[in-house]
Design a protein around this nucleic acid. Structure first.
Lengths: 196, 196
DNA sequence: CTTTTTCCGGAATCGGATTCCGCTTCCGAT
DNA sequence: ATCGGAAGCGGAATCCGATTCCGGAAAAAG
């Protein structure tokens, strides 16, 4: 009862966390480079630990993939909160955000699948998701004020856009940039824009 | 040297084709109902043949899935050529086409993955694809003439839209209908439209 | 320095796709 | 109608990769 910041359990072993981190980092690198097809044994070997260890920290391949994805989530979130929200270029916030997401996804092929899996399933990190949602909501608000997006655009719409983008990139169905433009165009208000 | 209309091979056995058809039909039904997760043994059993037979006709699960998808391709193609092109409702051709595709995909969950795989990979049926492309091209032309779509929209754009739609539906990331609307909106020309 | 607790490693297990091969059925010629 | 052999059939066996299990090792606690 010395560190009240722990509701349950006793203590996290030192080297355990080190391993967890090593595995996650390795996985992240491999997934990014060779796509989601990398196998568990591969990860274990590359990380210099036994398969059992990998499974101890990530009960499932899926879990590992999601964990890796979450890191990137974090980075995207930060980008949204920092760059996009701090430097509002006349309603270009959402566009910049989406383009960034596209670039990240395109850069690390395997991530797209991970994102889809992560978002498509449960609520792995309600916390982070919540922050992201808030940030995106702010972006929408900001762009809307600048007359750059329709009034009925919601956070869910942005979700859809990201999901679609993810799909296109993952399956390499074509020029994702063009796709992003189409979508963005779809979010803009009809005919020029009235107010500033 | 009796039937010169055969470049290679001799003759397709009677019951063989029957089985092939049976398997394909069964697979199609199962994939549509339970998604792409259905297993080979399942298909074999349901079709009333041995696993070996399934593999004789479709060397790979992937191949089977693609074959099943192709059938639907055919139906979609027909819809495009018949309904959409025959009854031009003031530039609503593309919209109807896309909505139909969405409905088909949503109706048979497993199909989305199949489509993605089929389109994403090679050119399984250059013939059918070509026809589809022609039909879509015509739809674009038609709608463009009615001022319903931008002048720079291409067949590839429609591909992108379908691919995106497919991704959304497969991963169940949200309301595909809304997504379709967004995309369609993105294809329309800027600011209302003067003519009819 | 023990005891207790948490981890580690990797062999074994499990599930599902794919291969292999002896047996059967169909085709075409006799 | 019959025969020889190619084309198919069935399904057991094999292969592969994810996941489980458990005895030994290492770290935290006393």
């Amino acid at each position: 009862m010395s560190t009240p910041s722990m509701p349950a359990g006793r203590k996290p072993r030192a080297d355990a966390e080190r391993n967890r981190a090593r595995v996650l980092a390795t996985a992240r690198a491999l997934f990014g480079e060779h796509g989601e097809a990398v196998q568990m044994p591969e990860v274990a070997r590359a990380a210099g630990v036994g398969i059992g260890t990998v499974y101890r920290h990530f009960p499932t391949r899926q879990a590992l993939v999601e964990a890796a994805a979450e890191q990137r989530f974090g980075e995207i979130l930060e980008f949204a909160e920092t760059d996009c929200l701090r430097e509002p270029q006349a309603g270009q916030g959402l566009r910049r955000y989406l383009r960034h997401v596209g670039e990240v996804l395109a850069g690390e092929r395997g991530l797209s699948a991970a994102l889809a899996a992560a978002v498509g399933s449960e609520a792995p990190r309600g916390e982070m998701l919540a922050r992201l949602e808030r940030a995106v909501g702010a972006l929408i608000e900001q762009d809307r004020a600048a007359g750059a997006v329709r009034g009925d655009v919601t956070v869910d719409d942005v979700y859809l856009v990201v999901a679609g983008l993810s799909g296109i990139i993952r399956t390499g169905s074509g020029d994702w940039s063009r796709f992003a433009d189409l979508l963005f165009e779809g979010l803009r208000p009809r005919s020029g824009r009235p107010g500033a």
